[in-house]
Design a protein around this nucleic acid. Sequence first.
RNA 1: AAAGUCGGCUGGACAGUCGCUGCCGCUUCGGCGGGGGAGGAAAGUCCGGGCUCCGCAGGACAGAGUGCCAGGUAAUGCCUGGGGGACGUGAGUCUACGGAAAGUGCCGCAGAAAACAAACCGCCGAUGGCUGGCCUCUUCGGAUGUCAGAUCAGGUAAGGGUGAAAAGGUGCGGUAAGAGCGCACCGCACGGGUGGUAACACGCCGUGGCAGGGUAAACCCCACUCGGAGCAAGACCAAAUAGGAACCCUGAGGCGUGGUCCGCGCUGGGUUCGGGUAGGUUGCUUGAGCCUUGGAGUAAUUCAGGGCCUAGAGGAAUGACUGUUCACGACAGAACCCGGCUUACAGGCCGGCUUUCGCU
Length: 122
Amino acid sequence: MLDQTYPRNLRLLNSRDFRHVFDQTQWKVFCPGFLLLAAPGRTTETRIGFVFSKKNIRLAVRRNRFKRIFRDSFRRHHHQLPPVDILVLAIKEANLTNDQKLSKNLSRVWKQLNQRIGSDPI
RNA sequence: AAAGUCGGCUGGACAGUCGCUGCCGCUUCGGCGGGGGAGGAAAGUCCGGGCUCCGCAGGACAGAGUGCCAGGUAAUGCCUGGGGGACGUGAGUCUACGGAAAGUGCCGCAGAAAACAAACCGCCGAUGGCUGGCCUCUUCGGAUGUCAGAUCAGGUAAGGGUGAAAAGGUGCGGUAAGAGCGCACCGCACGGGUGGUAACACGCCGUGGCAGGGUAAACCCCACUCGGAGCAAGACCAAAUAGGAACCCUGAGGCGUGGUCCGCGCUGGGUUCGGGUAGGUUGCUUGAGCCUUGGAGUAAUUCAGGGCCUAGAGGAAUGACUGUUCACGACAGAACCCGGCUUACAGGCCGGCUUUCGCU
């Protein structure tokens, strides 16, 4: 049975975690509307965090929705990924995408991230 | 039935699988099970409170807000009822609704004139003058009277015309023509009376021929209200590092220089305490609460009895997928909590009332 849960230790929890990813960014992956930054993990787990500003996604409903789609996809795929810390940034084009497009893109995104890490190891 | 108007409700449903989260129970501390988990606007943050801290807010000035009356409320700029005004056949809707007789500013175009009024066209020309006819008188120059004409002085504001607005309207009298000039009725102002808690109303009485443009969401004047900051408020626990205080120990110590000693240079260790950063706990959901029955009140609301506990996260949960189904699903996500207002909103449902038409 694959581990598809999403407990607390798979999330970036405080500003130190976030600062770490920003300062130590080693891999980047684009996804329409979003930019993923990744850095070597500070723990033995693969972790994820979000920076969605009101400036880029105006409605709170849409911000929540995108996070949930990301989180759900992440909990299904995180077992494929090495222990890195991932940060998802929303950019202005996030307004142009929608739920279906995003969830479609995501399985490709994880694969792409895995390749980047494989070709440029820690 | 159609059109309209006012008010209220609702905001896909069901099942399965995989997740998240706080609560309860069990636990071999790995987890397992159970039952909770966004809104009518959670939104804008525009008002009013509770709560917390600063503080103790007395006066003056400034500033902001409110502005018909009564009631409701913890409170309000909100709500309910009432009054005035405007709109609509009507149900109803709208109303920032104190003061223009304290002062200042502004008022396009048109028009003769836009404010201690004035007089373009028009009307009149009684009165004073001018010209002519006639009567009477005559000192033969004229004088008096009367009639007519022109309209010089002048009178007038009814009519025309301009405008949103030009010193109230209609009628009769009056006059040279006119005019509140006089009178009647309507309107207006003031005083009184009656009704109403009051705003205010009156087919009531009296007095006065009669207020003198608009604009105060322009300045302003008047009356009333307002201490400041906000849950990142505030309270508690508290590493590591640096620094501080007190006490104790050492000062023949330790480190450096040096081959070693002397010498020279620099100062240490321990315990406790308070402040306090990261971080954690709390504030954090039982409340001006919801449902229901009955009473008071036109209503807002309130009183009494019974029942219920209904999100509480924290880089921030409430989601994803699959199937069935229907009217194919709008606006939109809690962040200390309430009461309002405002704005957004696919559909659907219910009720009151009005107008028109049809039937009995």
